[in-house]
Design a protein around this nucleic acid. Structure first.
Lengths: 235, 235
DNA sequence: CGCGGCTTTGATGTTCATCAAGTAAAGTGG
DNA sequence: CCACTTTACTTGATGAACATCAAAGCCGCG
């Protein structure tokens, strides 16, 4: 097994240092990985740049190597953030096989590196390699489950519960520590949990006054996680 | 091609009259379809019966042949309906490859027939038949897209916009006519669009008074679709 | 029959969005 | 580099939207 992986790492393309394979692509034969890598481009996006745009034709499969991005839909001049994707998430996974055009936009929240592979190539490998296909399916299922979980979780929460929920999400899921810099503006938090910008700020200030956390601009430091958790669960 | 299909229809199992094949299963070879059918059971569920329950182990792949079902998650003693599935929707599609246990429950809204296939068998065919795998992936992508679309659509709407939206959903997507019997209680509508039961009723009464529709118990007759549409879009 | 669940309406209060106004920060062009 | 514009952030006041509580009628079912 270790030998197998080593062989893959010796391929010409710079997939050497890419953890791509360790996830879905572990099921690929060398020749398949190589052919995928041939059409592959690695593109860097600066914070704020579009990675893809709602309505654009879908030609490629996108995979986030580093950074952080947001997926969102625009309706009546208002953005709704669907989810925030971390490295190892297949950012274009859900929509990419559904239609000819993107149903939502993706932009970089932090400077990000994205692997781009021709969709036709991925489609071809799916057809040829069943284990790879099954891996893709599992990943999709997981992404979709997570989105459903968070939207139903948020559904019945009040403002404080929502803010608590999203702060815990950043602390536990994204940064894995209780002090971090918010990768999003107050407005983007609002777009993520269906609130107004003003109320996001108000609740954050309230939490600060109640010593649940300290705030310095984008920096959040969680001081009373227990309380935050019970607000998130109960609210 | 027609000959090919006819051959399939002559199989022992009662897949003859099942439109299953015309969707994803069209990509199956005879031998594969036959092996799937061997483990297949068709089960009837009466209105209100559980088809699967949050937390139960996942052993089977479920496909809705006839009827109507709701997928929902229970949190803090409150149900949140994720989506309503029609025939040809793969009801257990999204969660089924993600985890060992169901992340949500499914119950019948109308008397329903469900095809149940051993998951291990489906998984095996995915591994063996790339076209079938790709078909499954497309279906999943589509389901997921629809759920995302409706939740983001609903996100910023007020009560009247939500009710208009869901009524148009039943009229356009489910029943394909402007007069129909609601398959759900007022409370279930509330659980679907995040409102209280009382307000669902209030808005429906309001629409009745405004001559947008007539109501007789479960029966809804849309009288002013244009207005309903603009409420749904604008609200 | 009576019980529980579904439906309906009204009264009441809370939560939240909107409006307004001001400060701070960050990008832009001369 | 500084004036200028724009965008992000913050707080308060106000009213609208919505949930909650209460009460009563209705229907199906054991």
């Amino acid at each position: 097994m270790i030998k197998e992986i080593k062989t893959k790492l010796d391929l010409k393309c710079d997939c050497k240092s890419c953890q791509f394979q360790n996830l879905v692509f572990e099921n690929l034969k060398d020749v398949e990985l190589e052919s995928l890598c041939l059409t592959k481009k690695t593109v860097s996006f600066k914070k704020g740049e579009f990675i893809c745009k709602e309505g654009d034709p879908i030609n490629d499969f996108h995979y986030l190597k580093s950074g952080l991005v947001k997926l969102y839909r625009t309706r009546n001049n208002k953005d709704h953030i669907i989810t925030i994707a971390k490295p190892f998430d297949f950012v274009s996974l859900l929509t990419v096989f559904s239609d000819e055009n993107y149903h939502y936009s993706v932009t970089a929240l932090e400077d990000s590196e994205v692997c781009i592979i021709e969709l036709s190539e991925v489609r071809r490998v799916i057809q040829e390699n069943g284990s790879f296909a099954l891996g893709i399916i599992k990943k999709m299922s997981h992404s979709s489950d997570n989105i459903i979980k968070s939207t139903t979780d948020l559904g019945s929460k009040n403002m404080r519960g929502r803010i608590a929920y999203i702060l815990l999400y950043f602390a536990n899921e994204v940064y894995k520590k209780d002090s971090f810099d918010l990768p999003v503006s107050r407005r983007e938090i609002a777009e993520l949990i269906e609130m107004t910008t003003e109320n996001v700020i108000r609740v954050l200030s309230e939490f600060r006054k109640d010593k649940l956390l300290s705030i310095d601009g984008k920096n959040i430091n969680i001081l009373n996680k227990k309380m935050l958790e019970s607000l998130s669960n109960f609210g």
